[in-house]
Design a protein around this nucleic acid. Structure first.
Length: 289
DNA sequence: TCTGTATGTCAAA
DNA sequence: TTGACCTACAGAC
């Protein structure tokens, strides 16, 4: 599920199992053959996540930039050091079946299944990338350019993050629902977190950024930090509080709950569209003031 | 076998 | 604002 929490989990996974090692790379699908060749034999120095982008820094000064888009996913497997195969990204069946490690012996990665853009292999395991919208090798200056395009990331807080977020939002007349999905305003939030953050803050999605108060934005930022950190911990997006979850398994307040009663007030949750993306909200809890 | 859908983003119109 | 693109899968036929 590729919102920011997913990418930060991936960075952690790469640092855990691949950092400090020389890797072999291949592009079974063929579309990244040249890049794979340039990665082969290089040591992975560090993996880094910013918003929805994953950066793998190699020791020849080149960085692999990966964006999963809507469909991308990484699958991992290997020996006991990998502690079970896992799949991180969009929902996938491939890669979730039991692999070598389960059988007790690891004899190298399996034959690639489907369209594997990039396969990274170390002595102890492998990672397969499918369906990314971006997979490219970039220079240090291109890396800096990419970072500069991104707004503050609630999972990579810097001293001025909250203030930058507040000031950017308050300077724009764009609806807050659109601003929350704008990666130059807030990096890492996607459609699920957007809907849930607005509901939890009881904010009307169409409220222009200029109409929000400092207090409301401080609360919104703090809640983004809480929710994304939970996402990293849980490996999925759970935004309901335990007391609202007791009677069922509902993980979200409004996302994909259109036509169902709001967990707080019982009003039917509505589905609308804004900037080409689906927007879920409770017309009562989030009515304009 | 075909269609619709998905937690994303960009360029063209 | 729309279409294009990346990929796999569920459900309809």
């Amino acid at each position: 599920m590729p919102e920011g929490h997913t990418i930060h989990r991936l960075a952690r996974q790469f640092n855990d199992v691949f950092a400090g090692q020389r890797l072999e790379a291949a592009s079974p699908q063929g579309r990244f053959a040249a890049g794979a060749k340039r990665i082969t034999g290089q040591e992975l120095l560090q993996a880094e996540a910013r918003g929805k982008q994953l950066f793998l820094h190699f020791d020849h000064q080149l960085t692999l930039r990966v964006h999963l888009g809507l469909y991308g996913a990484w699958d991992f497997g290997g020996d006991e050091n990998f502690r079970g195969a896992s799949s991180i990204g969009a929902p996938r069946r491939i890669g979730e079946r039991e692999l070598g490690a389960e059988a007790g012996e690891y004899s190298g990665p399996p034959a690639p299944v489907g369209a594997v853009r990039l396969r990274l292999v170390s002595q102890h395991g492998w990672a397969d990338l499918r369906g990314p919208s971006v997979c490219e090798l970039i220079t240090e200056s291109e890396f800096a350019t990419q970072l500069a395009k991104l707004g503050p990331d609630p999972l990579a807080i810097e001293p001025e993050s909250e203030a930058v977020f507040r000031e950017t939002v308050m300077a724009k007349g764009t609806p807050i629902a659109t601003l929350l999905m704008d990666q130059s305003v807030l990096a890492g939030v996607g459609n699920v977190y957007r809907a849930e953050l607005l509901f939890r803050a009881r904010l009307n999605p169409w409220l222009p950024g200029t109409k929000l108060s400092t207090g409301e934005l401080t609360t919104l930022w703090a809640d983004a930090v809480v929710l994304l950190e939970r996402g990293v911990r849980d490996g999925r997006i759970i935004t309901t509080e335990p007391e609202d979850r007791q009677r069922n398994e509902t993980l979200h307040y409004v996302y994909k709950r259109n036509g169902l009663p709001c967990l707080k007030c019982g009003t039917v949750v509505e589905l609308s569209e804004i900037a080409g993306r689906k927007l879920y909200y409770c017309p009562n809890c989030q009515r304009a003031n």
